[in-house]
């Protein structure tokens, strides 16, 4: 199988044969399994651990047209000390910004261990030429980004031009250099679970270090079944190729409950090996405050209020 994987991307026909040869996703089964795992009850000490783990997995994100250097600096401060009143709160995994603000974030986070992630490649639509996308990526990397979140060309993918998508990912991966590449599939635009599985494989074959559900600009974003399918793809890819790929659900994860459901999904699908910020991330902005409020509730017994946490 490993030898055949190398030949898969020789032409659009071989890619198509391979991707369409993947077993189809049982939609009802996937929905049910995700819903069943979501009913797991995580309480007390396990919940406390899960909250800290989830905080450590957060990619604290701001991707607004109205982002300013000041807002990015404030977010970096929050990434380093999520709850200034409680030094036992772990740092988040990374801060995710637009390329032009990477330098600002990199300055604020230098030497702290918190990574700087940048979206690139004509985010969020991905509608531009390859040259522009490569230049966009190069700009972010030069400014100090440790991780690049690229979007795939959904138009080409849906049109069946798999090799174009593949080559684009390969080219961006090359432009990344040492930076980690996360490939955003934008599952909300892929229409079917079969397409999600195919896009996951395509991204992994092309060399993505992470596969990420969504940009956060399209609904539905990171649903549980979609994350489940991507986790299964990652597990199967490891078995076939021997290369481990991370997963990042992003968009629509707002509450601690949502985050813990994701962690249960990871543990039950790919196992503990992925329960680390190196292999699983949560792309979110408002989630962090809810995690902090739940953490405070567990520590003090009082329900926390949003008045006592910074606005995102």
């Amino acid at each position: 199988m490993t030898t055949s994987l190398a030949d898969v991307a020789t032409s659009n026909a071989t890619l198509r044969t391979f991707l369409h040869g993947l077993p189809g996703v049982d939609r009802v089964g996937a929905d049910q399994r995700a819903a069943m795992l979501a009913t797991r009850s995580i309480k007390t000490t396990a919940k406390a651990q899960a909250i800290d783990l989830a905080i450590g997995m957060v990619d604290l994100t701001t991707l607004e047209g109205a982002d300013t250097p000041g807002k990015v600096r404030a977010m970096c401060a929050k990434a380093l000390h999520p709850d200034p009143a409680d030094p036992s709160v772990p740092r988040v995994a990374a801060v995710c910004v637009y390329p032009d603000l990477v330098a600002e974030a990199a300055t604020a986070l230098r030497g702290t261990g918190v990574k700087v992630a940048s979206v690139a490649t004509a985010f969020p639509s991905g509608r531009s030429s390859l040259d522009v996308k490569i230049a966009d990526t190069g700009f972010a990397v030069a400014a100090g980004a440790d991780e690049i979140d690229m979007v795939i060309d959904r138009g080409a993918f849906l049109a069946g031009d798999y090799v174009k998508v593949f080559e684009e990912i390969v080219a961006i991966k090359a432009a990344c250099g040492a930076a980690h590449l996360k490939v955003i599939l934008e599952t909300g635009e892929l229409s079917t679970y079969d397409n999600v599985r195919r896009a996951s494989w395509l991204a992994m074959l092309a060399g993505g270090d992470f596969i990420k559900t969504s940009t956060g600009k399209v609904q539905p974003a990171a649903t549980l079944p979609v994350t489940l399918i991507m986790l299964e793809a990652v597990r199967d890819f490891l078995a076939v190729s021997g290369r481990k790929v991370g997963v990042k659900p992003a968009g629509g994860i707002r509450t601690t409950k949502d985050a813990i459901k994701m962690l249960v999904l990871v543990n039950e699908t790919v196992g503990e090996g992925w329960l680390s910020p190196d292999w699983f991330r949560l792309g979110a902005s408002t989630l962090l405050n809810d995690l902090l409020m739940q953490r405070q509730k567990m520590a003090t017994g009082r329900y926390a209020g949003p008045d006592y946490f910074t606005l995102d």
Binding site: G301, R302, G305, P306
Partner: peptide
């Protein structure tokens, strides 16, 4: 008592 302790009340 829970409402009395709730920080958002």
């Amino acid at each position: 008592p829970h409402l009395a302790a709730h920080m958002d009340v």
